[in-house]
Design a protein around this nucleic acid. Structure first.
Lengths: 132, 132
DNA sequence: TTTAACTTTAGACATAGTATAAATTGACAT
DNA sequence: ATGTCAATTTATACTATGTCTAAAGTTAAA
């Protein structure tokens, strides 16, 4: 995609085939992939790309503000292409993570916490996704 | 402590020296220790207790409802003696986790999430703890 | 006291992630 | 085009968290 190239340039990331493939993969992955999940995806099209490069690239993308990390799943960091504030619902059956729009929930009282200077917050919900 | 013994018995956990020491350690640790932090504590008084036993015991305590795990810190599971619903504040400087009482924050809208059956939720806040 | 169930132990294994050093690539001034 | 320096990629080693296994040790209870 041409879009990926532009995206990288906009964030002052020198585009390389490996970085383009990794960025493509993390964006295509949809639901909050882990680094190794991204690596698996990258390898299908670019089998020679090393694990270290995928890790490096993902960390770079986070540093440059293209992605955000979420610490929600046990033992894994997952990457979220949505860098704007929002909440998360974890389906305990499928282990899938779903974004909840910021406006769907309203939190009151966070600025009454005397001892704490809150930089960001989110609601983390767990349960089952309803089948239709 | 005699209390620990009673606590274990109340939760149908067969008390052993190792389990008593581990339970003591996780309760004394205060702020959300990781398994290896608990192991370090146990070893000061009981140097022969194995890592596996501490892990086994902590998992057992979770299973029996004495502790709850929290997935908040990168790469670690931490244990929380407070099993009642509450929120968490993570001090990004010290990496310390602080409990926020349930009533300090009010979340609205969580039962309007059409597609999700929420079993539990919490607000996770990050920032800096104010110095007095 | 013998048996069966439970518990502990050491160590192997699995997985996620970082660090390092050598090789490769790329940018670009000459 | 060429040489050079910086950036990038790679393979591999390493660390850390956590689980699993099989053997040894305990405990309870017939």
């Amino acid at each position: 995609m041409q879009n990926i190239l532009i995206l990288l340039q906009e964030h002052k990331i020198q585009p390389t085939p490996q970085r383009i493939a990794t960025t493509q993969a993390v964006l295509d992955a949809g639901s909050h992939p882990s680094a190794d999940e991204v690596w698996e995806r990258v390898k299908t099209d670019h089998p020679t790309v090393s694990r270290a490069t995928v890790y490096n690239t993902l960390n770079l993308l986070v540093e440059k503000g293209v992605l955000k990390t979420q610490i929600i799943k046990e033992g894994k960091v997952v990457f979220d292409p949505c860098v704007e504030p929002h909440h998360h619902f974890i389906d305990e059956e499928s282990d899938e993570i779903h974004d909840i729009p910021w406006d769907a929930l309203k939190v009151k009282g966070e600025d009454s916490l005397k001892d704490f200077e809150v930089r960001e917050y989110q609601v983390v919900l767990r349960g089952r996704r309803k089948k239709k």
